[in-house]
């Protein structure tokens, strides 16, 4: 760092009125009063949540909203997850618990026997979504996540797949699977295609 890189910031000089503070306070009061009686802005800004949702106003960006997770299915209707633990490794909140097993299908090696997400621990950062090599885990735009017990909010594989069924239309899977070990189903050749396209 050279000396002329340094910018010395000086406090701005105050006018006598500012030093006296009172006019400034009155100025502030004016601002707050203006907002107090600005009904139009208030109506425009505030949503009355349960009656009026962001879906209604079209402000919910379904493409990138970080809501409840879902587990995608492949075209054959099987869970797309390959139980690679990437999401649980990436998860800063350690809220994903996976137990892997040998898959019952001939074209796949590994699949999740158990897949639990503790939605209470989750911080909805979306790193799992980023980490997933097969785009199996995704965050849906669902934000109304309530339950009467904590246990209900630990979502298991069945619930996560169910959420996929419910949100299929809202948020389609963005990418086709890109790996070459038979994720998109039984057609072996289809698999190589996206892989080749992906070469940079």
């Amino acid at each position: 760092m050279r000396d002329d890189d340094i910018i010395v910031l000086k406090e701005p000089e105050l006018t006598p009125a500012e030093r006296l503070y009172l006019p400034q306070i009155l100025d502030g009061l004016k601002t707050t009063l203006r907002h107090m009686f600005d009904l139009q802005r208030r109506h425009a800004v505030v949503h009355q949540y349960p009656e009026q949702t962001r879906e209604d106003t079209g402000e919910l960006r379904t493409a990138n909203y970080h809501g409840v997770h879902r587990l995608n299915k492949d075209p054959d209707g099987r869970v797309a997850c390959v139980a690679c633990f990437m999401c649980s490794t990436a998860c800063p909140a350690h809220c994903i618990h996976i137990e892997a097993g040998e898959s019952p299908w001939p074209d796949r090696e590994k699949y999740p026997v158990q897949f639990d997400i503790d939605e209470l621990r989750c911080i909805y950062c979306g790193l799992c979504e980023e980490a997933c090599p097969v785009d199996a885990i995704e965050l849906t735009p669902l934000y109304e996540l309530v339950s009467c017990t904590r246990e209900e909010l630990i979502l298991d594989k069945e619930k996560l797949l169910q959420i996929y069924e419910e949100t299929k239309g809202i948020k389609p899977r963005r990418n086709p699977p890109v790996t070459d070990y038979g994720l998109t189903g039984t057609q072996g050749l289809d698999v190589a295609e996206p892989n080749m396209k992906r070469k940079v």
Binding site: M36, R42, V45, V46, Q48
Partner: peptide, 10 residues
């Protein structure tokens, strides 16, 4: 209420 009003809330 006043807090809400000054902050454009209800």
């Amino acid at each position: 209420k006043i807090a809400g009003f000054t902050q454009d809330r209800y």
